[in-house]
Amino acid sequence: METPEVEKCRTGSSGQPDEIDSILEKYRGRKDALIPALYDIQKVMNYLPESAAVKVAEALEVPVSKVYGVATFYTLFSVKPRGKHIIRVCESAPCHVLGAMNVVKELERELGIKVGETTKDGRFTLELTSCLGTCGVAPAIMIDDVVYGNLTADKIPHILSEYR
């Protein structure tokens, strides 16, 4: 999975060590800020590598085991490198009833990967998620921060083209 592309977005200009340090500056000594800190770091690093987790642990004065324990608890965090864009397909009942599985199948077909995998070019990671709170337009998916609803299989290629 460690394609050069993934590598690039992992350590691209934004992931420089001093940037991590400056992100953490405002959280120093604040144990309660673990989740905001992980958010900020993941934003620039794309995931939470061990080296960054150590910096968080140091800045917030918590054991790194806890940083890891927290990072692996929440689904919006990843401790493994991921694609540039994260596609999350809602698999909860309201979306399921209205055909979420067709959307999953179409995404898998279009991207040539299975759920849980990252495309070879490192552009997309496909994940399943619980309800996104947009069930009014079920079935729904979320690509990065953007929701797409009322989906049918035939809408998928067009949506993906925006990210290709």
């Binding site: 604040r30 144990k31 309660d32 800020a33 673990l34 989740i35 992980l38 958010y39 917030l60 918590v62 927290v70 608890f73 929440y74 689904t75 919006l76 965090f77 998620t129 619980s130 309800c131």
Partner: peptide
């Protein structure tokens, strides 16, 4: 950060405490 159980009030508090 993505955990349904955090809607439970004490889990929510744990989460807020980091």
């Amino acid at each position: 950060a993505g955990a349904y159980v955090c809607g439970e009030e004490t889990a929510l508090i744990e989460s807020m405490e980091g």
